[in-house]
């Protein structure tokens, strides 16, 4: 009886109504995921700085907008702050020899204090009626368009950049640092460069999200690395299954952003199913774990000891 009552309380109209908002948030997070893609997939560096950088981007943007700075300048400053944070992680890792995960965590933790200082508190609101915010949940449609324009420009720029000599050096360093050194690439410099670039994108995304939701919050970056990874991995699994062999670098970038959208649509769906919001992070982790495990398990299913044993025993029988 209770179940039927629960079902009848779900309104399909509400689900549909939530879709545009989820898409807008998904694209904004997709931009963040482009940053994660650079470190995680291209540089092969697990960068946990982003949890801090995302909030830094939000904090810098909101504080500057409140002080009367034009929004584009505020976003540029957010990107600069993100690049700086990436620079710190890169230097900790390459010049000071701190392992990648720890280097990221150290910067992330220090950003917590810096973000508190920036916000002079735990959060700060910015009112769309008083300031010319470029994305806001008050106008979801135009926000989607703006976010899409940002994503499209970034995808084009990244596609170009990773095709250049310098971008190729980043990909080579991620693929084989040993070979890269032998080919005359200064891999320390390249790592710092890539991590900075990645964090610049993450901060930009944080700056957009803070405008969209109308406030910056010290906790807005918590777990963002997992959301970014979720978008990257969902995008890859989808792209590979839809396009297969035709999956090229441009599609990989597009599917990263698309992965962010899918992620938020799934989140929207489970919220609609009235799952308590406290469980969201748990759900995100499960999604990432499942999508990371799928390609591995698939490969294993075709190539396992159990199967080999079965084949062997069939032959002997």
């Amino acid at each position: 009886m209770e179940f039927i009552a629960y079902l009848s309380s779900l309104s399909p109209a509400n689900l549909l109504a939530a879709v545009p908002g989820n898409v807008a948030q998904g694209i904004i997070w997709g931009i963040m995921a482009l940053g994660v893609f650079i470190t995680f997939r291209l540089l092969n560096f697990a960068d946990l700085t982003v949890d801090g950088t995302f909030a830094t981007g939000g904090a810098v943007t909101v504080v500057l907008i409140l002080s009367g700075t034009p929004v584009p300048v505020a976003l540029a400053a957010a990107i600069a702050a993100g690049i700086l944070a990436g620079l710190v992680t890169g230097i900790l890792n390459t010049l000071l020899g701190i392992p990648d995960i720890l280097a990221g965590i150290l910067t992330q933790i220090s950003l917590w204090s810096i973000n508190l200082l920036t916000l002079s508190g735990a959060n700060k609101a910015v009112n769309v009626d008083k300031y010319p915010l470029i994305v806001t949940l008050r106008n979801v449609q135009s926000s989607i368009v703006t976010a899409l324009v940002f994503a499209a420009i970034l995808i084009c720029v990244l596609y170009w950049y990773f095709g250049t000599e310098q971008g190729s050096a980043i990909r080579a360093t991620g693929s084989n640092p040993h070979m890269s050194k032998a080919q005359g690439i200064n891999i320390d410099f390249i790592k710092i460069l890539a991590i900075s670039l990645s964090n610049g994108l993450v901060a930009l995304s944080g700056g957009l999200l803070s405008q969209y939701q109308g406030f910056a919050d010290i906790k807005m970056g918590q777990g963002s690395i997992v959301i970014g990874l979720a978008a990257v991995i969902i995008g890859e699994v989808l792209g590979n299954s839809l396009l297969g062999k035709h999956m090229n670098f441009a599609y990989r970038l597009i599917f990263v952003v698309f992965g962010g959208v899918i992620y938020y649509l799934v989140i929207g769906l489970v919220m609609w199913l009235k799952m308590p919001t406290d469980l969201l992070k748990l759900l995100t982790a499960v999604i990432v774990a499942v999508f990371l495990a799928i390609p591995y398990l698939r490969a294993k299913a075709k190539n396992s000891f159990a199967l080999a044993g079965k084949r062997g025993s069939q032959k002997n029988a």
């Binding site: 950049y161 250049t164 000599e165 310098q166 971008g167 005359g184 690439i185």
Partner: peptide
């Protein structure tokens, strides 16, 4: 490009 600076020219 071994021995040359890696620029922003096409790879």
């Amino acid at each position: 490009r071994r021995g040359h600076r890696r620029t922003l020219r096409w790879g």
